[in-house]
Nucleic acid binder design. Structure first.
Lengths: 196, 196
DNA sequence: AAATAACACTAATAATCATTAGTTTTGTTA
DNA sequence: TAACAAAACTAATGATTATTAGTGTTATTT
């Protein structure tokens, strides 16, 4: 009889979420089967249901864990006295780090949120929209203070978020660059541009 | 007996690809069923097989049609005498326009290429890698010529491509901004940065 | 040691999937 | 109009899906 191996500082649920995130990233939520997920932990599919409510629940927990982290960080930034430029740099840095430490979960949250069940999907989108709105306000503030160029704020925010999300670190750049190099390049590029 | 309605300037296959692209975008390739696709055209699922080889074939055709367009444009750019900055601006502009005219196909190509069957997946990735390599060379050229800041070229390219891909126009900005506004904002931001 | 809770198992269900076979209907050409 | 090809249909297949039920085993607590 197989058994889920629990690391000393992680609950069983957390182990499952970690495996789920990796599998969902590799195969996509719909294509990933519960059987396959169970197999990565050496147990049978029905046994998983002693620990989880449903497959969809796993996706929810992954997506909202990530979303909550970003939202919490945004609160910190908003409550700080940093300049708009420093705030944006701070946000970029947080995204790059989060992506590097929780790659699978961030990736899944980014790519599979559309598969969330209706009500959760709406909640997720609302949270995301609020996040973007806060970021747009920071950019607008920078423009008003004549620190930033007069770009369309919502598009600039979209460009920044898309750029950092697109890193998809682990797949392409594992060990190729340090986190610090990635952070600094992204900040330099998105704040100061590519042209001298 | 239902019938696929063929527009005067589109082949039956093209109609199917258009419907497939929209469905694949909305539900994802795996979650989208052949039955559902057939339904959008008012016919039964097996009838579709008079026109297509398989579900996977549709994804292949969508992905490679898009990839081929981008590759062809890259050739044009490489054979031009434009400056590195103008070349990058040109590429950004092409991406924004392509996304606005062929939103569903571009989106699917971007998000669902992982579901391509093995051999096609490798070919797709090779094409993509070649594209990025060409773009990296342009950035490196700009750095060598002291026109560009000394950023890590591969990361800068990733940032640019991710930023333009992230637009996902139709969903969010339909009618909110003109294509020209989008193009110019992206070019301004990615070339000159956000800080004055 | 006895009792209990946690957790794994096998077997089964009902749904859905892509696809094939075989047939009938439609539209076009001879 | 007769013949033919294109394209629709129904029925069926076999695989896979998430999940439930019921049962046995292990680990923990009393």
């Amino acid at each position: 009889m197989a058994k889920i191996i629990v690391q000393k500082d992680g609950s069983k649920k957390e182990i499952i979420l970690t495996h789920a995130a990796e599998l969902f990233r590799k195969k996509g939520f719909t294509a990933a089967s519960v059987r396959e997920l169970a197999e990565t932990m050496g147990i049978e599919a029905p046994s998983l249901y002693n620990h989880i409510g449903s497959k969809a629940e796993l996706l929810q927990e992954i997506c909202f864990e990530v979303a909550t982290d970003y939202t919490a960080h945004m609160e910190e930034v908003l409550n700080s006295t940093l300049s708009p430029a420093e705030k944006i740099a701070n946000i970029i840095r947080f995204h790059v780090r989060k992506l590097s430490t929780d790659f699978d979960k961030v990736f899944v949250s980014e790519h599979e949120w559309k598969r969330l069940p209706q009500n959760y999907l709406e909640q997720f989108l609302a949270q995301r929209k609020a996040y973007e709105k806060n970021m747009i306000a920071i950019v607008q503030d920078g423009i008003d203070k004549k620190i930033f160029n007069n770009l369309l704020p919502s598009i600039a925010v979209l460009a920044i978020l898309s750029a950092v999300r697109g890193l998809e670190l682990r797949q392409r750049h594992k060990n190729e660059f340090t986190i610090e190099e990635l952070e600094e390049t992204m900040i330099q590029h998105l704040l100061h541009g590519i042209i001298k």
